[in-house]
Design a protein around this nucleic acid. Structure first.
Length: 788
DNA sequence: TAACACTTGTTTTTT
DNA sequence: ACAAGTGTTA
């Protein structure tokens, strides 16, 4: 069936991709049979190899649907798919099985759901749902909530699931039980039992279930396993060093038949053991697949020699690793700068000043800068400092878009409509917006449902036929809720996801509720978030729809639970400084990188200094941080910083001195101000005058960037371009609106501009819409048209 | 039931 | 410092 498509894309392959690879890369691409381990050092063109290996398979006549490629994030999958599509065309690439473990096996599980006694439309509980459920269980079992913390218990359960231990096996495992006893959590196994039970009854799987149930499916239904073994003739796994035991098992089972398994990774970049990742998977690959080939990609194309060598000098301190020698043939590059500041605020000021200054005197764009930290809490200081200098920035991570209250509430409606067994979704929406149905009533409903083994949805519909000791008035409110949901269910069957979402949003009066507490800025943000959600549903419908298929709400909801905010990049964030944790920086690269907060108890984290194993992981994390940098790397630490609202003194991280000193230069602390040779003094003089060209002294001439505008030494250009204000075009656009004008909005219709506040790019307009009342809109988001 | 003031724990990372 | 959770009151 793919035959004609093959011919179609073959002509694209006249571009010989093999010539774009070095010898080792090429070997890793063309030797596609059997088991392969590709050790890919940082910046060694790993994605390129994976991409071309898949292209090569397609070229050899392997149908795209026979290729299973598993990645660590949705974003990575999406990018790789796009790259492949650009060679072979989307008509072929779309049939590849490419995505995260969680998303791909979730869709397989939906296909096979009834075998495992789950509804096809099972919900996926995220961490918050799981914790809420655990909290309820801890209450129901009348356990001490000081002793039993949901997050902690979830960690125990997650660990058990990652090791394929059922509640029963958990209970039988002496080691686990004695550990729990030591922590005075004797009842953990019971919680695990009940948790499993309730998830099942709610038709819900948590993240770990998606993997564990896949194993159960393959274990208990050999013919199903066979089906997928036959289907997936070639299996590729990216970031193999961060796979856990269940993921290892899944891959192993699936690859048993054809034995075409290719794993790519770098043990030096294994940083997810806290989530159950086992570095052993990659270290033991040779044992598990005795017949295998190893390909080492050791040439780093990303960073300067100094950065690569410095990173090598650090990582060689780890004992357990696969021997390799990563090298760079790029320029030697400037030394790594170490900056010691007095306080965390000082650190923020230093980094933002440094960005402002180097940006003024070089060709760099804002997107060429990244600030990397160990914990999300550190972002605040940099936000403030950057904002003060009008430097645009973007924060990755933090709380996900999908975890925001208003978004979770909306999605809970969707979830309950699609899967009425979903108790956690029910509990979020039963009294939101307020229907005067309080906790007492909800508790009664939940208890009754559990005790009488009847689903909440079934119970709600016949609430008047059961004796729950709920008064008539409240019963009627519940029945109104039931009618509302039934209406949504019907509506969702007839209409596409976007129309349904809008309908639910309006009819449930979420929109009114959010608008209701009109504490300006906050509710404005919420409103915009909801608007953004609805827009993204619209996009989803538009992107996936074809002639003969309408995209329903259930299609959307199956996709959304596994999304994180890194998966939705926004246009307007194109040229901004990136702020993120090192974990989320994995796989990315920037010309200028600041790794901040290099202090004992912060990095390495105080929770990781107990064992050598943990320290090694923290060191790998630092290694990842360093190797994100292409040209300039700055590492900073503060003498003191605020922690839990108090000033805490801190010491320089042990990791700083683990970098071979020949690759670094430091600002010699504040005692050495007289030292004319130290770069901080130079820096300080720039900060005051901003006239000198920082680049001439501190870094090499630009050679990497293809996008470098060819303005040579035209300083006037750089000056204008790097001014913190927004570009001319955008400013004009913002100025086009005046108070009193009539404008038109896509959804709200015509309205009158009441007020304009803020400055570009965050100009806000307050518009009165007859149908909606006053709305505060961010100009850059709202597509407003001037009508008169 | 809901709003408010007061208390508590939180900060390691995330599919 | 802050958000979430708890308890008191109307």
């Amino acid at each position: 069936m793919y035959f004609c498509k093959f011919q179609f894309y073959n002509k694209f392959l006249t571009v010989n991709y093999l010539e774009k690879l070095n010898t080792n890369q090429r070997e890793a691409v063309v030797n596609y049979e059997g088991a392969s381990l590709i050790i890919a050092g940082a910046g060694s063109g790993k994605t390129r190899v994976l991409t071309y290996r898949i292209v090569h398979l397609l070229n050899k006549g392997v149908p795209p649907s026979a290729i299973l490629a598993l990645t660590f994030t949705n974003k990575a999958a999406k990018e790789m798919k796009e790259r492949i599509a650009s060679v072979v065309g989307n008509d072929v690439a779309r049939y590849l099985w490419m995505g995260t473990f969680h998303s791909k096996f979730a869709s397989i599980l939906r296909q096979e759901a009834e075998k495992l006694n789950y509804p096809t439309n099972f919900s996926i509980y995220d961490t918050l749902d799981s914790k809420n459920l655990l909290k309820t269980i801890i209450e129901d079992l009348s356990l001490d909530n000081q002793l039993y913390k949901p997050a902690e218990i979830l960690g125990r359960i997650s660990k058990a699931k990652n090791n394929m231990l059922s509640p029963h096996e958990y209970e039988q495992n002496e080691q686990i039980i004695s550990y729990d006893k030591m922590r005075r959590q004797n009842e953990n196994y019971r919680i695990y039992h009940v948790y499993t039970d309730r998830c099942k009854k709610a038709g819900a799987m948590d993240f770990d279930d998606l993997l564990m149930n896949t194993i159960f499916l393959f274990r208990d239904f050999p013919e199903t396993l066979k089906k997928y073994q036959n289907l997936f003739k070639y299996i590729l796994v990216d970031e193999y060093q961060d796979t856990n035991f269940t993921q290892y098992l899944i891959v192993k089972k699936l690859a048993e038949l054809h034995n075409n398994i290719c794993v790519v990774g770098d043990d030096a970049q294994s940083i997810y053991s806290f989530r159950g990742a086992k570095i052993e998977n990659i270290l033991n690959f040779k044992k598990n697949y005795p017949e295998h080939q190893v390909f080492k990609l050791e040439q780093n194309y990303r960073s300067t020699q100094t950065i690569v060598n410095a990173a090598n000098s650090l990582i060689k301190r780890n004992r357990r690793q696969i021997p390799k020698s990563v090298f760079s043939k790029n320029q030697i590059g400037g030394k790594i700068k170490i900056y010691n500041s007095l306080t965390d605020k000082d650190e923020g000021r230093f980094v933002s000043n440094s960005i402002a200054d180097t940006k003024l005197s070089t060709y760099f764009d804002y997107r060429d800068y990244a600030i990397l930290y160990r914990t999300n809490a550190q972002s605040r200081i940099f936000e403030e400092a950057l904002r003060r200098l009008n430097i645009p920035y973007k924060i990755y991570g933090g709380l996900s878009f999908y975890q925001r209250k208003e978004i979770k509430d909306m999605i809970s409606y969707f979830r309950f409509v699609i899967n009425p067994l979903d108790v956690e979704a029910f509990k979020r929406i039963i009294n939101y917006p307020s229907r005067k149905i309080g906790k007492t009533t909800v508790d009664k409903i939940e208890k009754y449902s559990i005790n009488h083994n009847i689903s909440i949805w079934a119970l709600l519909q016949k609430i008047d036929e059961h004796d729950l000791k709920i008064n008539k008035n409240t019963q009627n409110k519940i029945l109104l809720f039931v009618e509302l949901i039934k209406d949504f269910v019907e509506f969702s069957k007839e209409n596409d996801a976007y129309i349904t979402a809008e309908y639910i949003m309006k009819k449930s009066n979420i929109i009114g509720e959010v608008k209701g507490d009109n504490t300006l800025i906050e509710s404005m943000g919420r409103l915009q978030n909801i608007e953004e959600l609805v827009n993204s549903i619209q996009d989803f419908v538009a992107n996936n729809q074809d002639e003969n298929q309408v995209i329903k709400l259930e299609d959307y909801i199956q996709n959304v639970s596994l999304l994180t905010n890194t998966d939705k990049e926004k246009e307007e964030d194109f040229d901004k400084v990136s702020l993120m944790t090192i974990h989320s920086a994995k796989g990315l690269e920037f010309k200028n990188v600041y790794v901040v907060g290099l202090e004992e108890n912060l990095f390495p984290s105080s929770m990781m200094i107990e064992s050598e194993k943990d320290i090694e992981e923290e060191r790998r994390l630092f290694y990842v941080a360093i190797t994100r940098a292409e040209q300039n790397l700055t590492i900073s630490y503060a003498k003191s910083r605020y922690k839990w609202g108090k000033v805490v003194d801190s010491n320089k991280s042990r990791f700083i001195d683990e970098i071979d000193s020949q690759f670094v230069e430091s600002n010699k602390q504040h005692s050495a101000k007289s030292n004319a040779g130290n770069w901080e003094n130079k820096f300080n003089s720039f900060a005051s005058s901003s006239k000198t060209n920082f680049r001439e002294r501190t870094s090499e001439k630009p050679t990497y960037t293809k996008s470098t505008p060819s303005f040579g030494s035209n300083k006037n250009y750089t000056k204008i371009d790097s001014s913190p204000n927004i570009s001319q075009a955008s400013a004009n656009n913002d100025n086009k609106f005046q108070i009193g004008m009539t404008v038109e909005h896509d959804r709200f219709g015509k309205g009158k501009v009441i007020n304009i506040e803020g400055n570009p790019p965050n100009t806000k307009v307050i518009v009165y819409f007859p149908s909606e009342g006053n709305k505060t809109l961010l100009l850059k988001f709202a597509k407003l048209k001037v009508v008169g």
